[in-house]
Measured scan of single mutants.
Amino acid sequence: MDPFVVLVLCLSCLLLLSIWRQSSGRGKLPPGPTPLPVIGNILQIDIKDVSKSLTNLSKIYGPVFTLYFGLERMVVLHGYEVVKEALIDLGEEFSGRGHFPLAERANRGFGIVFSNGKRWKEIRRFSLMTLRNFGMGKRSIEDRVQEEARCLVEELRKTKASPCDPTFILGCAPCNVICSIIFQKRFDYKDQQFLNLMEKLNENIRIVSTPWIQICNNFPTIIDYFPGTHNKLLKNLAFMESDILEKVKEHQESMDINNPRDFIDCFLIKMEKEKQNQQSEFTIENLVITAADLLGAGTETTSTTLRYALLLLLKHPEVTAKVQEEIERVIGRNRSPCMQDRGHMPYTDAVVHEVQRYIDLIPTSLPHAVTCDVKFRNYLIPKGTTILTSLTSVLHDNKEFPNPEMFDPRHFLDEGGNFKKSNYFMPFSAGKRICVGEGLARMELFLFLTFILQNFNLKSLIDPKDLDTTPVVNGFASVPPFYQLCFIPV
């Protein structure tokens, strides 16, 4: 058959498939802009700032609406009420993970971030239990974070109060905490193996944040037939998995079943207990991918939040002064901060919360999916439909947070200066898919920041009023603009 005829037939089939998918069930789905064949609503979305586009569309179609990214149908949730109703009140029905062709290629359905069903539930339950087990290797997770915080302070001392970009050092600290939990080992910041790991993690975040990856996920045929950065992403992930597998083999040879040292040991012990169960989800494949998931999810998000926190503290020296006064009063100079201190430091706690609220790190979270046909607000959402959640619409709700575009710790303080919780605080998402490392991340943010401010004054290279804190939105995360500062020993 003539190649031209084959091409026309293929394009015609794709067009018909697109029209059929977009028209099927439209009477039951939430409203939304009319999609174009094949490309859907992509032309109506700013790929570099999806969150802003969703906010604009919500003003037209309401808090629940339908979009098509290519052939992929998505239902968008915008605003606290619908997000709570879906992710919390109907948590089980909305607990699936959205379709990610690239991740599915890399992870093969294993791990904790992109798995679904029984596998996801069992691996998540085990990971939560293990991360909360403060007795691994007779050292609590808090001990590990405190140790890394001391190392971080010593690295900052080496800058000798000269101007520096904190990106690298602030990236090393949370990565080392995860390494300590998974591998029972922290690395020197100049260790070549550690630097290679950091390089792969950072490069992957840069790649994932590009519009090209959005295109690959919406048109998965590209993955096999086109060159691009997605190939580098898959190569980096394969490198990390190979490295983790080597460490798993080392653990198998040296493990003491009665004295687990780290996450890998705990997983291997669980595998041993379930070795007679042919349906067990505790396999080497799941261990390797879960460890890679924890490394990827637990490094860049925390380091970016820390980097943004220091920029905001530079911009608002009056806030920094209040935090340091609270540190001096509650902790002093002669001991290290600990998590028990947080309950006695409402202002510092409010500042950490406000940093996370203000920066809105992951504006749309990772997409969910419905696990069955769901009736939601008089609409029928078919099983498997991807759910896109606007966390921006919750964290920047102007009824809950007056002047949401302003950095103001009073958003989390009552009139008496006591810490005030808010149900709208969802930087880790909400419901059954809430970030498994939430507790660890909150511990790291509090301890790293208090250790830094206990030991250093922060000095800006320019007038604080002239510092730009506008986030650089890159399609996946909101990151701070480049800046330098000086760490002046107190």
Rank of each mutant, 00 (worst) to 15 (best):
P3N: 09
V5D: 08
L9H: 01
L9K: 03
L9M: 11
L9E: 00
C10P: 05
L11I: 12
I19E: 06
R21W: 11
R26I: 12
P35V: 05
I39K: 03
I45Q: 04
I45P: 03
K48M: 12
K52Q: 10
L54M: 10
T55I: 08
N56G: 10
S58I: 02
K59I: 07
L67T: 06
G70R: 00
L71T: 14
K84P: 03
A86I: 00
E92Q: 07
E104G: 06
R108A: 08
L128N: 15
L131Q: 03
N133S: 15
F134T: 14
M136D: 13
M136W: 14
R139Y: 14
R139V: 15
S140V: 06
E142T: 06
C151S: 11
R157Q: 10
S162K: 15
P163F: 14
V177F: 04
I178F: 04
C179N: 15
S180Q: 12
K185Q: 13
R186S: 05
R186Q: 07
Q192V: 12
K200R: 11
R206P: 04
S209F: 07
I215W: 12
F219V: 10
F219C: 11
Y225S: 09
F226K: 03
T229D: 12
L233G: 05
L233A: 07
A238T: 03
E241A: 08
S242C: 10
D243L: 15
E246S: 12
Q252N: 09
E253I: 12
E253P: 07
S254Q: 07
I257G: 11
N259E: 12
P260D: 02
P260H: 03
I264M: 11
F267V: 02
L268F: 05
M271V: 10
K275Q: 15
S280C: 08
E285K: 08
T304V: 12
Y308G: 07
A309C: 10
L312K: 01
L314S: 07
L314R: 02
H316P: 00
V323Y: 02
E325A: 14
E325T: 12
E326S: 01
E326F: 00
E326R: 01
S336K: 12
P337K: 00
V351S: 03
V352P: 00
E354G: 00
V355W: 01
Y358T: 08
Y358P: 00
I362Y: 13
H368G: 04
H368D: 02
A369R: 14
D373C: 04
D373Q: 07
K375F: 08
K375R: 13
F376L: 09
F376N: 00
R377L: 06
N378L: 03
N378C: 05
L380M: 13
T389E: 00
S393C: 01
V394F: 02
P402M: 15
D414M: 06
G416A: 14
F419Y: 06
S422K: 03
F425D: 10
K432Q: 12
C435K: 00
E438T: 07
L440Q: 00
M443Q: 10
L445R: 02
S460P: 05
L461R: 11
K465N: 13
P471K: 15
N474Q: 11
A477E: 14
L485V: 14
